[in-house]
Amino acid sequence: MIPPKFDYHRPTSVQEAVQLLQSSPEAKVLAGGHSLIPLMKLRLAAPAAVIDIGRIPDLRGIQALDSGELRIGACTTHHEIATSQAVQRAAPLLAEAAAQIGDRQVRYRGTIGGNLAHADPASDLPAVVVALNATLQAEGPQGSRSIPAAEFFVDLMTTTLQPGEILTQIRVPALGQGTGSCYLKFEHPASGYALCGAAAIVSLNPDGSCAQARLCFNGVSARPVDAAAVAQALVGSDLSDGAIDAAVEDHLRVPDPVGDIHASASYRQELAKALGKRALKAARDRARG
């Protein structure tokens, strides 16, 4: 219940934060605190120092470029994302998922950057940023670099962020016309985390057939799962219920499915099938308007 002692720093710029992180490698970065503080309270994390980036103005807010691309500061809260009209317009999948994270109180404090950097595979955003082909901007001693979401998540609670790097921004390309998306979650009744979360995106050709599809999962493996084979199988199809069911049944493979006391690996795969189909169908219906 009580965090261990730590030194506290509150930088006012990203540059200062990076410098602080460099000078105290044992430090942890604090954004909203909704991943880090619970770990510290259970004494599962005991950083020597905490660098609070929650007040750096550059890290907050949602900007929509003319191209439609969204630029979301890492310290933007789930609530801000879920209720942002810009996000709902350009990447409704992200808003839909953000609205399902934790609970209302958690969404007011938890941030997109904190969530992604924490890389909890049962969280709601990892598969969503992968499905959206988002790019994650990191700032480090060597400067700034862009990381495609698909390459960001390495393993359970592990990302490609290097020591000394801070996640600063999430860039999300806008979904095109004739595209629908859906995020569905089967949550653990206690934690609310995803036993399986399915993020689906479907784009239609003018004739109604499938131009592009994407299906990614949270919760079923140590990192987000991109069911590219399912998506591939759908391209060109009529997106009928039968076509979707068949694509999922025949092509969904979950690599290294996780099993724990909350759900077995085999059940998680079955959930992925059920939710994958439903998410794709809902995305299709939304694409059809």
Binding site: L30, H34, H79, Q105, Y108, R109
Partner: peptide, 29 residues
């Protein structure tokens, strides 16, 4: 205070008008 994992909500207060779990916010924040 009803839990130590940010689940129960007994510690909810309004912070700048929004409900937050005060067990998961540092006083310095």
């Amino acid at each position: 205070i009803g839990c130590d994992t940010s689940q129960c909500g007994a510690c909810t207060v309004l912070m700048d008008g929004h409900a937050v779990k005060s067990c998961t916010v540092l006083a310095v924040q």
